[in-house]
């Protein structure tokens, strides 16, 4: 049963105040291995702030974050990523000036074993590693149907494909958990459909996924569990069918 799966990400009592705006007030949630957890809530509810704090981009005021057995609070973003915790951004943040392939290869950074001297002198180990990295990146790209775009400048791709590229980039690090911030935002119906398939396939591979999304259809369709955030507080939690009919959730979304 689902509850047997180990908790991979544990967030406890997270609070954050932005100069008077209480973005999070004592939020706790758990993400289990191989589960898709939906995180929804109206604009300004604090969803992005939560992801920012978990990934280390923003510092929390209070609370603790555990990833597997590691306490994350004191770690910088790159150290958290190096542990296998990946994320995407609401505003894409693609690397302009790099090709699609190079963007994805950047994702594999945490897996690199060669350092400065080996690459500077281009020793055999560095060459082999680079080739392997390219092969992996290409295979991820072809899985997402982007193989033919590999050598285009990433910033020239249409919006929907850029969103896929950043997911591919996050996947290239072979993470154990991934935090997706509105991956379907700005996508059309067909693209959203595809995205849903991709996310489901990721779960098959045992990845833990936190899905922040405004597209409730998508959330209800693929998530096993949903957490609802409103004004920085968790107001409901449970399987999609329960959430859909929860009066507090309706109130938060529609107002009184």
């Amino acid at each position: 049963m689902a509850e047997k799966r180990p908790k991979i990400l544990k967030v406890e009592n997270l609070s954050k105040n932005f100069g008077g705006v209480q973005a999070l007030r004592g939020v706790s949630l758990n993400l289990r291995a191989g589960e898709i957890l939906g995180l929804i809530g109206p604009n300004g509810a604090g969803k992005t702030t939560l992801i920012n704090i978990v990934s280390g981009v923003v510092r929390e005021d209070a609370g603790t974050i555990f990833f597997e057995e590691h306490l994350l609070n004191e770690l910088s973003p790159w150290q958290r990523a190096a542990l296998g915790l990946a994320r995407t951004f609401q505003h894409i943040q693609i690397f302009a000036g790099l090709t699609v392939l190079e963007n994805v290869m950047c994702g594999a950074h945490r897996l690199r074993k060669t350092g400065f001297w080996e690459t500077f002198l281009r020793l055999p180990r560095a060459v082999a590693e680079e080739d392997e990295c390219r092969r992996q990146a290409l295979s991820i790209l072809s899985e997402l149907g982007l193989a033919d775009k590999a050598n285009l400048p990433a910033e020239n791709l249409p919006y929907g494909e850029q969103k896929k590229v950043v997911i591919a980039r996050a996947l290239a690090s072979r993470p154990r958990a991934i935090l997706l911030d509105e991956p379907a935002g700005g996508l059309n119906e067909k693209e959203t459909e595809e995205l849903g398939e991709i996310i489901l396939r990721l779960r098959e591979k045992g990845l833990a996924i936190l899905l922040v999304e405004h597209d409730l259809n998508l959330v209800m369709r693929i998530c096993e569990r949903v957490v609802v955030l409103n004004q920085g507080e968790v107001i409901a939690e449970g399987p999609p069918c329960e959430i859909q009919n929860d009066p507090r959730v309706l109130e938060a979304y529609l107002g009184k």
């Binding site: 973003p77 790159w78 190096a82 943040q93 790099l98 950047c106 400065f116 690090s173």
Partner: peptide, 30 residues
């Protein structure tokens, strides 16, 4: 030698950093 460097993971990490420091850090680039 410098061409070796820029055409490697190190060079890519540098360019990623210039393009977006936060996004780069979230991929494990220090």
């Amino acid at each position: 030698l410098t061409f070796n460097l820029v055409h490697s993971g190190e060079g890519r990490a540098l360019r990623a950093l210039a393009s977006g420091e936060i996004a780069a850090a979230c991929l494990g680039i220090n």
